[in-house]
Write a protein that binds this DNA or RNA. Structure first.
Lengths: 198, 198
DNA sequence: TTTTGATACTAACAGATGTTAGCCTATTTT
DNA sequence: AAAATAGGCTAACATCTGTTAGTATCAAAA
C-alpha cells in the first residue's frame, strides 16, 4: 500500500486520521470503533496509525479538548462583552448551533463520548464542563436580577438549551433539510420566546 | 456462590439482571459494559446469566423496546384526547420528564444506545423513533394552523423538546437537587413560554 | 548518488470479549 | 423419599482488541 495521500492542502496525515476517527466515533461510538476500522477508512494498516498518534485514547483527547477549548474561549469573549443578557444568551446559542452545523462530528463526539477519556483528562473535562455550565448559568441569573429574563431555575435553563442544541444531530440525518441558517433562527426563536403565540 | 437472591418481591431473577444491566449500560455505554461486569454486579458468574437471557443484545432489546412501547402507547392516548394543542404538548412533555426522573436508567439507555441494536430490531427502532417524532410534529402543526402555537418549524420544535428533556441526565448527577416536581415545572414553563420575560 | 528520516508493512503479543458445553447442587414437585 | 427442574459453577472456545517490534520502502536532503 502507498502512503496516505497528502492532498495539496496544508492538512497533515495526522489531521486526516483525526478527522476519520471523529467520523467513526460519531457513527459507532468510541468503544465500538476499532483502530483497524479507522485504519481501513484511512487506507492503511492499523499499526501504521501509531506512526502518527500515540494511542486510540489520544485521538479522543484531541477531539474533545479541541472542542472544549473553543467553548471556553467563546465564553470568555461573551463575558467580556457589554451585551444585554438575552443578547449574550443568543450569542452563545448561535455559537453552539454553528458548531453543531459546521463541526458536527467533532462536537458530537466530544459531547457524547467524553466519558471514555482516561485520567487525568477525564476529570479535567468534567471540570471544564461543570465550569462552563456554571458560567452560563451565572449569565442567566444576572438577567433574572435585571428582570430581563423570567424567574426560572438558571441551571435547568442552561441544561435545556445545551441539550436542545444536541438535537441538531437528528437534523443532520434528516432528508428534509431546511438550511442551517433557517434552523438557527428557529432554535433561537424557540429557546428565547417559547412555543406559545404571544 | 448461592443463587441470585430473589427478594420477597415479585421481581424475577431475569428482571434483576435487566435492571443491573440497564444501570451499567447507562454508566459505561453498551459496548463498554461487559457480561462479566454485569455478572459481578448481580453476584454471579458470567456464564450463569445465560440461564436467564439469550444474549447481551437481548438485554438491550428488552430495555429499548420497553421504553419505545411506552412512548407509542402514550402518543396514542394523547392523540385520542380532546385537549388543546398546547395541553397535548404539555402532557407529552410531562410524560417524558416523568420518564426521565422515574425510569432514568432505562430511558437514558434506550435513547443513547439504541444504535447498537442489531437487525431486525435496529430498523424497527429507527422506524418507531421516526414515526413518533412525526406524530409529535403533526400535533404542533395542527396548533400552528389553529393559531395556538407560533409559526415555527414543527420538526425543529420536536427535536428541541425531546433533546432538552435528555438534559435531565445532568440533573441526576447534580448534587444541588431541586426536586423532580420543581424541575418539571421549570422545564414546562421554559419550553412553552421561553426565556424572555413577557 | 548516497544518506537519512518518515512512514508503510507483516507478525505477533497479551488480554478482553461473548458465548457454549458439561457438570453439580439446591429447590420444588410428585 | 425420589425425581425433576432450575440455576449455579468451571473450563474452554474463537474472535476481536489495542499495541509493539522489527523490517522494508519511498521522498527529500546531502
Amino acid at each position: 500500500m502507498g502512503r496516505i495521500k497528502t492532498t495539496n492542502n496544508q492538512i497533515s496525515r495526522r489531521e486526516i486520521i483525526i478527522e476519520k476517527a471523529a467520523t467513526l466515533f460519531k457513527e459507532k461510538g468510541f468503544k465500538a470503533a476499532s483502530m483497524r476500522e479507522i485504519a481501513d477508512v484511512v487506507g492503511v494498516e492499523a499499526a501504521s496509525l501509531y506512526n502518527h498518534i500515540k494511542s486510540k485514547n489520544e485521538l479522543l483527547n484531541i477531539i474533545c479538548f479541541d472542542v472544549a477549548n473553543r467553548y471556553t474561549h467563546k465564553m470568555e469573549e461573551v463575558e467580556a462583552s457589554k451585551l444585554t443578557t438575552l443578547a449574550k444568551v443568543e450569542s452563545l446559542l448561535r455559537f453552539h448551533i454553528d458548531g453543531m452545523v459546521n463541526h458536527f462530528e467533532e462536537v458530537y463526539v466530544s459531547d457524547r463520548e467524553w466519558k471514555h477519556l482516561d485520567n487525568p483528562y477525564l476529570s479535567n473535562m468534567q471540570n471544564q464542563r461543570r465550569t462552563y455550565r456554571k458560567r452560563f448559568a451565572a449569565i442567566i441569573e444576572e438577567g433574572i436580577k435585571k428582570k430581563e429574563v423570567k424567574k426560572i431555575d438558571a441551571a435547568t435553563a442552561v441544561l435545556i438549551m445545551l441539550h436542545a442544541i444536541g438535537g441538531i444531530e437528528s437534523w443532520h440525518r434528516s432528508t428534509r433539510k431546511i438550511i442551517g441558517k433557517e434552523l438557527e433562527e428557529n432554535m433561537v426563536t424557540f429557546l428565547i420566546d417559547g412555543l406559545r403565540k404571544i
